[in-house]
Write a protein that binds this DNA or RNA. Structure first.
Lengths: 227, 227
DNA sequence: TAATTAACTTTGTCTTATCAAAGTCAATTG
DNA sequence: CAATTGACTTTGATAAGACAAAGTTAATTA
């Protein structure tokens, strides 16, 4: 069985993998993501590679094998189901469940996970809008764009928040930009590096402005047309 | 912060402590309870003693300090609240929650524990009838006797099951002897080393017989008189 | 192309937690 | 009171996971 440390490395390798499938994840990025020194990451990755969970190419980086990806997705499934449980059943605020889930994801048994999945009625997304892999290790790809590259003026909805820190999520709360919120991007100001948008909050329109770097943390979906 | 290993040692020292307060817990019993070799227990106890969580007297044994007892009770509180949560909210069977709780007790944050306590409405007992220490580290003493030394013929109730193994609890299920069940001890046969009792199960009386060694695992309380 | 630099790897050491096996103590037995 | 026995402790070794610092590579700059 993979130790909690190995589970963590695999999860971070999955989450930090570069968009281009052919690319390797560099050791620098991995060590930063896991929170260890580069030397530690190198030696751990060597060990994980001996277990055929990753491919490792010195000075190039690391990449999950199919077996490693399955394990990573399983950890992610646990993490996201737990987050949803903490919010929906135990009533914790969505801004504060990440840390707890980070620990719980390594100790929840398959039996318990099945029960959680059942109680939540086999949910597809966690409170942050992140997709929950199936028990079989399949993850649905969302076709989303960020607030930086979605069309202007059209009615869209917040689908997913990419920054899980408590402070950021509390800011998101205040703006009313939770997953599901209906919005419209009014304008992008390239000089000021800001995005301006309208949040449609219980009938009232609220104007929100944020920098490009913050806008990147929101994934949105075009609203489906009503026929 | 105490590591999960230290938490486990403290919990076992608490649970295995001899009935007589003045006695020390021997290292043999502790090492068996924790599931390590005696040498390992000795060196861990030395370390825990350096942290002033236990007193250790070579060749005599080990005993919790007030600080160590508080920590042990806190772990026990987590364990028992989690067990109740798994049964009442997640719908697991009471016979199978012990293992999960054994892991979860070391990772549940204070914040999460408070929520669990709230949702369960500050319960006093876990599914096995074990008392749950308060957040302040106070544990109510039950005045119970076992099926071996309770009075014969009088109406009593099962208060607590001391063996938490899944197989045993499944047997308890079958006999209908869950905590709260009303019973009456009919007879003790010292030659056969058996106890015979009546379980009052939904109006019908059911006769159950068990050996002295099994009878010891049930704690019972005299039923309160209705005025 | 040589020098510099940033990123990565190696090496040696540390901590925690464990076991096996050898050593010690003290209580019982003869 | 010596010998035996069982319980406990000590010692030495191991594995996992980490860091610091020294050593490599390879890309960039001059």
């Amino acid at each position: 069985m993979a130790s909690r440390t190995i589970e963590n490395y695999l999860k971070q390798i999955y989450l930090s993998r570069p968009a281009d499938e052919a690319q390797w994840l560099t050791m620098g990025k991995l060590s930063a993501a896991v929170g260890v020194t580069p030397g530690t990451a190198t030696s751990m990755v060597r060990a994980i590679s001996d277990a055929h969970l990753v491919e490792y190419e010195p000075r190039a980086g690391v990449r999950l094998t199919p077996a490693g990806e399955q394990l990573a997705l399983h950890v992610l499934r646990r993490h996201r189901l737990i987050e949803l449980l903490l919010v929906q059943v135990l009533g914790l605020d969505w801004s504060e469940v990440h840390e707890d889930a980070e620990e719980l994801e390594h100790v929840v048994s398959d039996r318990l996970l099945m029960k959680i999945d059942e109680i939540l009625q086999h949910p597809a997304f966690d409170p942050h809008g992140d997709p929950i892999p199936t028990a079989g290790g399949v993850i649905r790809r969302q076709d989303c764009c960020t607030l930086l590259d979605c069309p202007l003026g059209e009615p869209t909805s917040i689908a997913r928040i990419l920054d899980q820190s408590a402070e950021f999520l509390q800011y998101v709360n205040q703006c009313g930009l939770l997953p599901g919120a209906e919005i419209r991007v009014a304008n992008r100001n390239h000089q000021a590096q800001t995005v301006e948008l309208m949040a449609i909050k219980s009938g009232e329109n609220q104007v929100v402005a944020m920098s490009f770097s913050v806008a990147e943390k929101f994934l949105v979906q075009l609203n489906e047309q009503k026929k």
